[in-house]
Simulated scan of single mutants.
Amino acid sequence: MLSLRMDGELLDRVRRRAARSGMSVQDYVVRALVKDDFDARFEAAVDETERFYGGS
């Protein structure tokens, strides 16, 4: 379970973006978190590969 607090203005923006994507606010937020986590893990993997192979 995840609980978030956000002000009304942010919630309105998230609702609009979720609606444009045809998603619920909950699904939209979870998708954003998953994408951010993937991006961070991918960047870390690229950095590690560059260190291992002595990349530029």
Rank of each mutant, 00 (worst) to 15 (best):
R16L: 01
R16I: 01
R16F: 02
R16P: 00
R16S: 02
R16Q: 00
R16M: 02
R16W: 01
R16D: 00
R17Q: 09
R17C: 06
R17K: 14
A18M: 03
A18I: 01
A18T: 07
A18K: 03
A19Q: 02
A19C: 06
A19P: 00
R20T: 02
R20M: 07
R20W: 06
R20F: 07
S21A: 14
S21V: 00
S21E: 10
S21L: 09
S21T: 01
G22W: 08
G22I: 10
G22H: 10
G22L: 11
G22C: 12
M23P: 04
M23R: 05
S24C: 04
S24I: 04
V25L: 05
V25F: 02
V25E: 05
V25Q: 06
Q26N: 09
Q26Y: 05
Q26K: 12
D27T: 00
D27V: 02
D27C: 05
D27L: 07
D27G: 05
Y28E: 02
Y28H: 09
Y28R: 05
Y28W: 01
V29R: 06
V29P: 00
V29D: 00
V29N: 06
V30P: 01
V30E: 14
R31I: 05
R31V: 08
R31A: 11
R31L: 06
R31P: 06
R31S: 11
A32C: 09
A32M: 12
A32G: 02
L33P: 05
L33H: 00
V34P: 13
V34T: 09
V34K: 06
K35R: 07
K35V: 11
K35N: 15
K35M: 10
K35Y: 14
K35F: 12
K35Q: 15
D36H: 08
D36Y: 08
D36N: 05
D36A: 08
D36F: 07
D37T: 08
D37Q: 13
D37W: 00
D37E: 13
D37I: 03
F38Y: 12
F38W: 12
F38N: 12
D39S: 11
D39I: 01
D39E: 15
D39Y: 04
D39G: 09
A40H: 03
A40P: 01
A40T: 15
A40Y: 01
R41C: 13
R41P: 13
R41S: 15
R41K: 12
F42I: 14
F42Y: 14
E43K: 13
E43P: 01
E43T: 07
E43V: 05
E43D: 11
A44T: 12
A44F: 10
A44H: 09
A44P: 04
A44C: 09
A45K: 03
A45S: 11
A45I: 11
A45P: 00
A45D: 08
A45C: 06
